[in-house]
Amino acid sequence: MASADAPAGAGTGPVPHTDPSAEDTLDLPLSEELLGLFGDGTGATATTTAPNAPGPTAPSSVPPPPSAMPAGDVGADPTGPMRTTPNRAASSDLLDRPADWGPVNTPAGVFQLVPVRLERDLALISRWMNDPAVAAFWELAGAETVTADHLRPQLDGDGRSVPCLGVLAGTPMSYWEIYRADLDPLARHYPARPHDTGVHLLIGGVDDRGRGVGTTLLRAVADLVLDNRPLCGRVVAEPDLRNTPSVSAFLSAGFRFFAEVELPDKRAALMVRDRIHRAHL
């Protein structure tokens, strides 16, 4: 799994149902509250979704040592969870504070979403964005300023999209965006419901791809969202239909194919993981 996909464009979208168990419909107007949150769209995430099939690092069942963590104020305590100083977006209640979600055990090792800090993480994320396999979908190749211009609206925004490093067994190896799909331009292209939460993902290193870790981490992140966002009934994603490994990874992680959607820059597979089906996955 090399990358997630390219920008979905800007705009406003349809308003979701208020009953999570209701049937999907496209004919609902936006409320004044959601219109206000949309604003001019500058706070929304600029990319659409998901990875090609990545690969794991060595399995681990205990938190990694501090020396293995990213530089700066992210660290691991051998007797407790990792710590990070959150940015403004990561502390927002719009996504129930991803900075506080903490590490989880997975079959691939201990995993944690660590909110991005530009001064610490820009060089690494920009290097990943310049990998041809990633650039084909994210379209953010170039100087570090290109990646910085993508990150800043999220970091300085109201918290509807939070960029994170995925740290697996002590090593930063993936980039994630956790976002409010119902407040994103994506909402104009599907029957969004309140608190729908979207994920975008790219796997950074070539050595971490093609071994199935993408499926493991997608399942872990979807579980993190559902565990920490009690009002969220669905986790959604929109990989490019051409990105077959990505679509396959989502299906293997318990997402279902919902529909093909025509986005401004691609034709996407809308993938949905439902809270009500979680016990059966």
Rank of each mutant, 00 (worst) to 15 (best):
T84Y: 01
D77G: 00
L122W: 07
P103N: 08
P98R: 10
A123V: 07
P66W: 06
P98E: 09
W101R: 03
Q112F: 00
R88H: 13
T106A: 04
S91T: 05
P81W: 09
T84V: 15
R83T: 15
A53H: 13
T106G: 07
G75W: 12
P115K: 04
D77S: 06
S91V: 00
V110K: 09
S67A: 14
V116M: 02
L122P: 07
G109A: 08
P107S: 10
P65Y: 03
P98D: 09
M82G: 15
A123H: 10
R97A: 09
G75I: 05
M82Q: 12
P64T: 08
D73C: 03
T84I: 14
E119R: 13
L113G: 03
L94Q: 11
P98M: 07
P66V: 08
T85A: 12
D96Q: 11
A58P: 00
P107L: 04
L95C: 03
V110D: 08
E119H: 12
V110N: 05
S92F: 02
P103Y: 06
V116F: 05
D77K: 02
V62M: 10
L124D: 00
A90E: 02
D100L: 12
P107T: 04
S92V: 03
M69H: 07
R117W: 01
A99V: 00
L95G: 00
T57I: 14
A99R: 01
T57W: 08
S60K: 09
V116A: 01
P59A: 06
A108N: 10
Q112G: 09
A53D: 15
F111D: 07
G102C: 04
D77V: 03
L118V: 11
V74N: 04
L113P: 01
A99N: 02
A53Y: 10
A99Q: 01
T84E: 02
S67G: 14
A53K: 12
D93W: 13
T57S: 11
D96E: 12
V104N: 06
V74H: 11
P65F: 04
P78M: 06
D73W: 04
T57L: 13
V110T: 15
R120A: 12
P65Q: 11
R120C: 10
A76Q: 13
P98S: 08
S91I: 01
P63I: 10
V116N: 03
A53N: 15
D73M: 07
T106S: 04
R83G: 09
A76N: 13
A53P: 11
P56R: 05
P86D: 06
A89M: 03
V74R: 12
R83Q: 12
L124Q: 13
T79L: 14
N52Q: 11
A99F: 08
P56E: 03
L118P: 00
G55D: 13
A68P: 00
S91L: 10
